[in-house]
């Protein structure tokens, strides 16, 4: 059974400049199996982030169906979508999105708090284990500002994985990193996803990364401006 199934999904946008009229993003069909490592590519503005937002329940489609881990995401209410994200998804962002006032350990614990999967002690144990796995055990009491860029992204990965989610969505996770750190972060992501059999969907412009993934999904033809024909995925 696929972990992600999308059918005839459409999302309509009104451009900010309003000069180009209506925009429509459409994806006919996509199916992703558990444990797959997918990279989503395409030029800027083609709707890569739109796809992640739709899968995460942050956006609701105007048409079509989206099923993630057996849940119809497109029909969830806002509170249901919030809880769904905490329980089924791990999110990783280009700019890490760590909370500056919390320590590394507390940032990771936040994931457990809103994942609602572990009790207090289990959450702390999981956070301790992940800190060791991402090699930041010595820096658990530091605040994000004192970490390097690569270290901050490793904290974000630990936070995303603390609930052992079946699906990990990563939006340009290595865009801020140099080549060496990119490879290190990818190694870590792949290893931890393999450990929990998590599916990884990553958005990236980096063509060099593509070879390390199982499948490439190109969204170049999904966005149509001034409402016309759209290419199908």
């Amino acid at each position: 059974m696929p972990i992600i199934e999308c059918h005839a999904v459409e999302k309509h946008f009104q451009p900010v400049d309003r000069q180009h009229g209506h925009c429509r993003w459409r994806m006919d069909e996509i199916s992703i199996s558990p444990g797959e490592r997918i990279i989503v590519t395409g030029p800027s503005g083609c709707g890569k982030t739109t796809l992640l937002n739709l899968l995460a329940g942050l956006l609701r489609p105007d048409a079509g169906t989206i099923t993630v881990n057996g849940v119809r995401v497109d029909t969830l209410s806002t509170p249901q979508a919030d809880i769904f994200r905490g329980q089924h998804l791990g999110l990783i962002f280009q700019s890490f999105q760590l909370i500056a006032s919390l320590t590394v350990f507390e940032n990771i614990l936040l994931g457990a708090r809103y994942g609602r999967k572990w009790d207090r002690h289990e959450g702390r144990d999981r956070a301790e284990q992940l800190l060791k796995k991402v090699g930041l055990n010595e820096r658990k009491d530091h605040r994000p500002a004192r970490l390097s860029i690569g270290e901050q992204q490793r904290v974000a990965i630990a936070r995303a994985l603390i609930n052992e989610p079946p699906l990990l969505l990563a939006d340009e996770p290595t865009a801020s990193l140099d080549r060496a750190n990119t490879e290190r972060v990818l190694d870590l992501l792949f290893a931890l996803c393999a450990e929990h059999n998590s599916t990884l969907v990553t958005v990236s412009h980096d063509q060099q990364m593509a070879s390390r993934f199982d499948r490439i999904v190109d969204l170049s033809a999904c966005m149509q401006r001034d409402a016309g024909e759209v290419a199908h995925v």
């Binding site: 806002t78 919030d82 994200r85 905490g86 329980q87 999105q97 760590l98 708090r113």
Partner: peptide, 16 residues
């Protein structure tokens, strides 16, 4: 606003 958005992305509901 950014921190609130982060919490929401982690699964915090509006009620939280």
């Amino acid at each position: 606003r950014r921190d609130i958005a982060i919490l929401r992305s982690l699964g915090a509901t509006r009620g939280d």
